[in-house]
Amino acid sequence: MLKPFLLALALAAPVAAQAPYTTTTIGVAQADTMMAAAVKEAEARKLALAIVVVDEAGRIVLARRMDGALPHAFELAKRKAMTAALIRASTAAAAEGFAKGDHTLLAIDNMLPIAGGLPVKDGVKTIGAIGASGSPPATDEAVAQAGLAALRN
């Protein structure tokens, strides 16, 4: 009678010891808030940009190509957002490293070390990123920053 109990206990122990995989990611409501603020900033500057919000793994949550945005702007905005999410830092910081000779980032597909991508943080954890493209990099970053700032309000 003891053997079935021990067998059940032995089989249950590994299951009980496993912790569930959890992740924290940006939600659609947060992405909507960021997108609205970034688009408002772009419109105030009379810019036609592409803006992309991704989750912590660089997958698109929300994307918009404004009327008049250049055809390649969407791809660049997506890559900026992906880069910021995956490196957990701004693409401006990546650009600085690249300018100093650190080209390791290019070993990862679709990485883009050009300003305009910013990570979205929940405390210290990166939960996503926003990327903007279609104007000079510093202006793209300012538009992305407007989107990021909307989450703090």
Rank of each mutant, 00 (worst) to 15 (best):
K3N: 13
F5V: 10
F5W: 03
L6P: 01
A8N: 09
A8C: 13
A8D: 03
L9S: 12
L9V: 15
A10G: 15
A12S: 14
P14L: 08
P14F: 10
V15Y: 03
A16Y: 12
A16Q: 07
A17C: 14
Q18T: 13
Q18L: 15
A19F: 11
A19W: 05
Y21M: 11
T22N: 04
T24K: 05
T25W: 05
I26V: 15
G27S: 13
V28A: 10
V28D: 01
A29H: 08
Q30Y: 02
A31R: 09
T33H: 05
M34A: 10
M35P: 12
A36F: 05
A36E: 07
A38I: 10
V39W: 06
K40M: 02
K40H: 04
E41C: 12
A42G: 11
A44G: 15
R45S: 14
R45N: 14
K46C: 00
L47P: 00
A48D: 08
L49W: 08
L49N: 07
L49D: 00
A50G: 15
I51E: 00
V52C: 07
V54P: 03
V54G: 02
E56C: 03
A57H: 07
A57Q: 05
R59P: 00
I60S: 04
V61A: 01
L62G: 02
L62Q: 11
L62V: 04
A63I: 02
M66I: 04
G68F: 12
G68W: 11
A69M: 03
A73Y: 04
E75K: 08
E75L: 09
L76W: 05
L76E: 06
K78P: 00
R79V: 05
R79N: 15
R79Q: 14
K80F: 08
A81K: 09
M82Y: 14
T83P: 03
A84S: 14
A85G: 02
L86C: 03
R88C: 06
A89Y: 03
A89M: 10
A93S: 11
A94P: 04
A95M: 08
F98P: 06
A99K: 14
K100L: 14
K100I: 05
D102M: 09
T104I: 02
L105P: 02
L106I: 08
I108V: 12
I108A: 02
D109C: 01
D109S: 14
M111I: 02
L112M: 13
P113E: 01
P113D: 01
P113H: 08
I114N: 00
I114R: 04
A115Q: 05
A115W: 05
G116T: 07
G117Y: 03
L118V: 10
P119K: 02
V120R: 09
K121Q: 06
D122A: 14
G123H: 09
G123Y: 12
V124L: 11
V124H: 12
A129E: 03
I130G: 08
A132P: 06
A132V: 12
A132Q: 03
S133R: 01
S133K: 01
P136N: 09
A138S: 11
A138L: 13
A138Q: 13
E141V: 09
A142Y: 01
A142F: 01
Q145E: 11
A146I: 03
G147D: 05
L151M: 05
R152S: 15
N153I: 14
N153E: 14
